[in-house]
Nucleic acid binder design. Sequence first.
DNA 1: CTAGGGTTAG
Length: 630
Amino acid sequence: MFGCNKKLKFLSTTVFSRPRFITVLPSSLLSTANPSVSFTKQAHACIVVSGLHGNASFLGHLIALLALCPSTPLEYSFAIHQTINNPPVFMSNNMIRCIAKSESPRKSLVFYSDSILRSCARPNNYTFTFLLQACSKSLGLCEGVQIHGQLLRLGFGQDVYVKNALIHFYSCCCKVESSKKVFEESPQRCDVVTWNVMLAGFARDGELSAAENLFVEMPERDVVSWNTMIMAYVHNGKLEESLDCFRRMRECGLPPNEATLVTMLSASAQLGLLGHGRMVHSLIDLFNIPMTVTLGSALLDMYAKCGCIEQARIWFDKLPRRDISTWNVMICGLASHGLAKEALALFRRFLNEGLCPVNVTFIGVLNACSRAGLVKEGWRYFRLMGDVYGIEPEMEHYGCMVDLLGRAGLVSQAVEMIESMDLSRNPVLWATLLCACRIHGLEEMGQSIGHKLIQLDPTYDGHYVQLSSIYAKSKKWEDVVRVRKLMVERNTCKVTGWSLIEDQGMVHRFVSGDREHKRSLEIYKMLERIETRLAEAGYTPNIVSVLHDIGEEEKEIVIKVHSERLAIAFGFLVTSSGACIRIVKNLRVCSDCHEFSKMISRVFEREIIVRDVSRFHHFKEGKCSCADYW
DNA sequence: CTAGGGTTAG
């Protein structure tokens, strides 16, 4: 019934039958790893029954115990605290700690002035550590600055815990300069945590090079230092650097922990590196790291984002514990692979288990509906979200709905939705519709939306390319040229398209027309051979498409070999016959490469899995899982 | 007697 029965038994025997050992009781209680409120209540009952309820020390420990519980009703600790007149500072400190951990950490400052200052009790280094925690959490900059002044006056400025809390506090409140000041004041009075909080401060502030320099300077690095550095890379989009940092950590022989692996799984997932992700997976067992909900969710996410949706599913069923996030990862994963039926079935199971969906859950559900063209169901879930679960739709939900309607050819309904919701300044929604117009051949509508888009978002070249391809489809060549000229004149920002493929733990990234790879010669030869075979099988590249209907990847009018083909050709060089080829792209697949991949999957009996910027394409036996809509 | 830093999902 209770997780801590053994401890409780020990407690009661101590209290009732061996009162001379009573002072042992509190410390043995506090050694409890994960106290629960119910356990603490029983301890409380024992204390009361044995007539010790006036003992401030016991009750202080009880409050300390409550501070360690994952969620405690504050009233409970308050009630205990109030039973003691002139509570000792030890008790008040733990009370502050409780409040700091609660949902309303700001109250700890009120408590501090009411309880400690008013009673003229002397706060100590613990008091300030907890108070600063509260300020960090509630972003109470002004209050924290006052606390800082007070603790300096009372002479706690050199306490290492207080100092670390201060550095942490300033960096939480976006005042890294102040953190740095505190950090640099007395360098001899610091420990590895001091360095770590400073490191995290730079990372939080996006000062990656400052973080790197500090990391190099550190006299010693523990697992948190490495984790902080690795996360700094991941959060700043330096995914390959994070992999490299992890490699260096492993070379140091320092064992990774859960946080390390969660971050590395996330990095592998974002990059789409299945091999790397699998390697990280194997470390979970190697280091005996318990499969927590967080780790499990990160693992599923890695498999789903690396194209192994079956593996994700297998692990989903195997996981010892799941929470809402785990379900979200799985539902969204299935949807991104176009497995709409499975995603919706899982969602129904989710509801049957009595779980409450959140906004992300509905993004997965609506995405699934959109991929399967389930207009009616999409609307139903969209309404269910607000009516039953009270979730206000966000931009992403509208995005799914616009995609759903556009895909079904109901472009005017989608336009209506965008305009009635006053979302007409959002380029992403219009871009989704432009895509629908292109696919459904709605040229007039496409042209008008295209012009709206380049007005709304004139700096992104993808819109110009889309618009020009719509004109190309209607053979309006002057307009094609006009739009392209406009794009050049406006000096739009280009995102260089690339395709990535992993081989033997190495990442090979290709750009359009790439000749940099050391096996470039072989790659082009292989590509030629592939193209010959495809031509024999009846694949003819669409000349109009090559010249004009080019995907976002193609930024110049010059015809170059798309990066995706180079990656595929390289895939043929390094994988054994019949093995699946996995590609990750940072942009959308162009229609010509899409055809090309479909043909390859048939002619060479090769499965190709391409991760696009927004979805997966599984090419198999001449067909694609996206059913030619993307 | 009590204390600190780092974590997932669209």
